[in-house]
Amino acid sequence: MPLAEIPLCVWRTRGLNFTFRNQSIRYWTAGQGEPLLLIHGFPTASWDWHYLWQPLAQRFRVIACDMLGFGDSAKPAQHEYSLFEQADLLQALLQHLNVEEPVHLLGHDYGATVAQELLARHHDGDAQIGSCAFLNAGLFPEAHRALLIQKLMLSPLGWLVARSFGRDDLVRNISQIYGPCTHPSESALDDYWSLVASNRGNRIMHKLMAYLPERIANRQRWVGAVQAEGVPLRFINGAVDPVSGIHMVERYHELVPNPDTVLLQGIGHYPHTEAPIQVLRHYLAFRQQPLPSLLQKVAWS
């Protein structure tokens, strides 16, 4: 029995808007309890969490947004995108929702680096973080293996590569990073492309790619944030991801004291869509929460 999917057309109807620095940001929230902020990766959007959304909302107050430049949020063309600004955005969203208690983080890929910045702010006394879990994250830039398309978008001709980037390019690159038996359906690929192309998003992809050199420039701060004590951490990782797979977990064990990691064999870069039941099980175990009764028999089998 798989987790119920929320179709993108339904997901979009449930979104709300708030304004961040004169830009419209699309966000979602559901459930009650401790706040859990879900932070999506590159190049997709918060719909990535749709399999986990309802089960998590049974336990927590779940919150997600399409960050600036992603999904159905604003994608200003003349803008310098920054992970620091995305962290500002998430803090503004929490303030907009009157979240005052410590927030728990679950971040994937690009979003995991934003989570690292929020962790750094916690250690600086500028945020309140209760716990943090990462999914297939480029936590250590020296271990991250960028795709060729990412390198091309970082080149002086990146604007041209981005402008010509289409659905077939997305499919070709996504196919490289999923597990061998967990590729998305054609319908899901259509939906991913819809989110990338929304608000003419392909024209700014080279600008969003600035997060890769930004990780290198801020390595000391962001690696230090996961090495510091005080906030429970777990790294749940799809082992066969060529970008941030088992090699990233190995680096995590070298650098992080008392590492708490979970390897999902045969799973690639998107464990929350490739193996959502496993991710749910390991995340709730991390938070020491029981599985929703409907899923308990399946998820523990």
Score class of each variant (00 low, 15 high):
residue 1 M to T: 09
residue 6 I to P: 13
residue 11 W to Q: 11
residue 12 R to D: 04
residue 18 F to G: 11
residue 24 S to C: 15
residue 32 Q to S: 14
residue 32 Q to N: 10
residue 35 P to K: 10
residue 36 L to S: 10
residue 38 L to Q: 01
residue 39 I to E: 02
residue 44 T to G: 07
residue 49 W to Q: 03
residue 51 Y to S: 06
residue 51 Y to D: 03
residue 56 L to I: 04
residue 58 Q to V: 11
residue 58 Q to G: 10
residue 58 Q to R: 13
residue 64 A to C: 08
residue 65 C to V: 08
residue 67 M to W: 01
residue 67 M to D: 00
residue 74 A to Y: 13
residue 74 A to M: 12
residue 74 A to E: 15
residue 80 E to P: 00
residue 80 E to R: 14
residue 82 S to E: 15
residue 87 A to R: 08
residue 88 D to T: 00
residue 92 A to S: 12
residue 93 L to M: 07
residue 96 H to F: 05
residue 98 N to T: 12
residue 101 E to G: 07
residue 105 L to K: 02
residue 107 G to M: 06
residue 107 G to P: 01
residue 108 H to V: 13
residue 110 Y to W: 15
residue 110 Y to C: 04
residue 114 V to A: 11
residue 115 A to T: 08
residue 115 A to E: 05
residue 117 E to A: 11
residue 125 G to W: 09
residue 130 G to M: 05
residue 130 G to C: 05
residue 133 A to M: 04
residue 138 G to V: 00
residue 139 L to N: 03
residue 139 L to H: 06
residue 140 F to C: 05
residue 140 F to P: 07
residue 142 E to M: 08
residue 147 L to A: 01
residue 157 L to Q: 08
residue 159 W to Q: 11
residue 160 L to I: 15
residue 162 A to D: 10
residue 162 A to C: 12
residue 165 F to M: 08
residue 165 F to C: 02
residue 167 R to L: 15
residue 174 I to N: 07
residue 174 I to Y: 09
residue 174 I to V: 14
residue 175 S to R: 08
residue 177 I to W: 06
residue 178 Y to E: 08
residue 181 C to W: 06
residue 181 C to R: 13
residue 182 T to D: 00
residue 186 E to K: 11
residue 188 A to M: 12
residue 200 R to L: 07
residue 202 N to Q: 14
residue 202 N to P: 04
residue 207 K to T: 14
residue 208 L to T: 07
residue 216 I to F: 00
residue 216 I to A: 10
residue 219 R to Q: 10
residue 220 Q to R: 14
residue 220 Q to K: 15
residue 223 V to Y: 01
residue 223 V to N: 00
residue 224 G to E: 05
residue 225 A to P: 04
residue 226 V to H: 05
residue 228 A to H: 04
residue 229 E to G: 06
residue 234 R to T: 06
residue 240 V to I: 01
residue 243 V to C: 12
residue 246 I to M: 14
residue 246 I to S: 14
residue 252 Y to F: 14
residue 253 H to T: 02
residue 257 P to K: 07
residue 267 I to N: 02
residue 270 Y to R: 01
residue 271 P to T: 10
residue 272 H to D: 03
residue 274 E to K: 03
residue 274 E to D: 03
residue 278 Q to G: 06
residue 283 Y to L: 11
residue 286 F to L: 08
residue 288 Q to T: 10
residue 291 L to R: 02
residue 291 L to F: 05
residue 294 L to F: 09
residue 295 L to K: 01
residue 295 L to P: 03
